[in-house]
């Protein structure tokens, strides 16, 4: 699926839109994900996105603060 590489950016261009998306997202974080890792990464990303949809499906008050620190 890899059609060409652009060595000056490290971003690989692909013809598969999902693969392209992973390439772009990874590059934004300084990552290059080899083709042999892609299927596993995509499966996990899809799972995480399904959880993301659940999280965003709950309307929360604007003034509810995030609980980064644990305070029982």
């Amino acid at each position: 699926m890899v059609s060409k590489a652009e060595p000056e950016t490290g971003v690989r261009m692909t013809t598969d839109p999902h693969d392209s998306e992973i390439t772009v997202l990874a590059a934004a974080n300084g990552l290059t994900i080899p083709s042999e890792f892609r299927a596993g990464v995509r499966t996990n990303l899809e799972l995480l996105r399904s959880y993301g949809a659940l999280i965003e499906g709950l309307e929360l008050p604007d003034r509810l603060e995030p609980a980064f620190r644990y305070e029982p």
Partner: peptide
Amino acid sequence: LAGALLPSTLIFQAHRL
């Protein structure tokens, strides 16, 4: 690697939840 591709806004929402 999949975790590294998530948008930061989602993590913020998760901590609010």
